[in-house]
Design a protein around this nucleic acid. Structure first.
Lengths: 250, 250
DNA sequence: TACGGAGTTGCGCATATTGCAACAAGATCA
DNA sequence: TGATCTTGTTGCAATATGCGCAACTCCGTA
């Protein structure tokens, strides 16, 4: 709706990947360099971009500060964090906390396990609806109408042999997930990574969050992760309790 | 330079503190609500703001994602983090990593100690030039010209009885800092908090970073912190080594 | 059913934004 | 050393863009 602001947002995304000189930014936007300069200067004034040692534009420190602040404002995170941390320490695997926001599942916390590997997930990013354990477990427990809306957002892009590439296949998985009480990711995004995910309930009993435990298949097979599901579930229930849930698993 | 972008930045800062309805945003900017709406919709499209459950605008998840990404791109941080973590664990105090950016010292990492207390510092924020230990230690080791530029940014606002409120007083402290090899904060920002800070050198031997260890006076007095300065210094030297510094303390 | 508050959309006007062209400041090279 | 190229910055005139207005919808409340 606002062209200039849209361009400013575009710039931040462009500069996020690597440091860029003015000319590259202008070219990327398809505008004259003076135009790009003026937007960049405004962003720089607000601390959203800055110049690195080489004079190229990179993301600014205010962006970090707002990001941290926004993170602090996600209430569930502060309650859940100690539990996630303990889980990660005890098992040595990477732990994620996901939250349903609108029609997407967003990673709101992540604790790296031992020997942390590069993983696509990042706090604040949306989880892949059709592959991520957290996404699947949260989706599985939603009312039909909401579930449909979430599924509408799935891309069904194929990443590996086991990726669900059709809605029917994913729905079957979700039903199974609900039946057994947890979700599994059997190398659906990266074939050398698997994960299990358990649901977290809020005070009204709704599944608003999910906790996933992710490991390299080389470190822990899916079967090994399954052996500890009860522990993961009790951690999730601990978080549920802190969110005010008084009930028991139906 | 760009009015609309400046307004967009203003909006983000405005909704950062608390959720705001459209009317409040418009009033804050002093523009018609339709104008505010269009900027908000653009920001919403980019994920920089979102609507909470009550329809009020809050910071968006893309802001968190960019914040995390920007954090990762600060190279020194990734190298220093494990060292800071060990320091925080061993002593149980809160540890900060500060970096000189332009004429300011910015917190680029923070590891909470046991029983973490609410502290004004936040990753991405600027440190108070005249009170923060990291700021003082980094400033103390700069070349005269740079030091002057940093000192020009100091507010000398009085927070407690021990706050340096004049340039002369702070400069004397900096000289002392350089002489003894570390900086101290004797309750200069909050009278119940003190801290010591040690310098970190980059590959060229320049002091670009600082590590501070902060504690409640009730938990550890300044004298007690001093007893461990050698350990803090060796941690800082470890980071310096990872940044490529081959030399020894002159 | 009428009322008031909050958000949204279409439209004409004018202001803020744009591209240009000229300039400044480094690099790079002969 | 000087010439040439690259990159960033500023002044200005034209107009596309963002602006306020007013009318409308949608809620909740009386």
């Amino acid at each position: 709706m606002s062209q200039t602001v849209a361009r400013a947002i575009d710039i931040i995304g462009f500069v996020a990947h690597q440091p860029r000189p003015l000319n590259d930014v202008a070219e990327h936007l398809g505008v004259h360099k003076s135009t790009a300069l003026r937007i960049l200067q405004t962003l720089e004034g607000g601390g959203f971009v800055r110049k690195d040692a080489g004079g190229h534009y990179v993301m600014g420190f205010q962006l970090i500060a707002y990001g941290q602040l926004a993170l602090d404002q996600v209430e569930a995170r502060s309650l859940a964090h100690p539990v996630l941390q303990e889980l990660a320490e005890r098992h040595g695997h990477t732990v994620h906390l996901g939250e349903l926001v609108g029609d997407h599942i967003v990673y709101i916390d992540k604790v790296d396990g031992r020997g942390s590997v590069a993983m696509g997930s990042r706090i604040g990013l949306r989880a892949q609806t059709h592959t991520a354990g957290v996404a699947k477990v949260i989706t599985a427990y939603q009312a039909p109408a909401i579930r449909e809306r979430i599924l509408d957002q799935a891309t069904f892009e194929r990443f590996t042999d086991t990726t669900h590439t059709s809605r029917e296949s994913l729905v079957a998985d979700l039903n199974q997930t609900r039946a057994r009480g947890w979700a599994e990711d059997d190398g659906e995004h990266e074939d050398y990574i698997n994960c299990v995910a358990v649901p977290v309930r809020d005070a009204r009993g709704k599944v608003t969050h999910g906790v996933s435990v992710t490991a390299l298949t080389a470190v822990a097979s899916l079967a090994e992760l399954r052996n500890h599901v009860d522990e993961f579930r009790s951690a999730a229930q601990q978080i549920s309790a802190e969110l005010g849930w008084k009930g028991h698993t139906p």
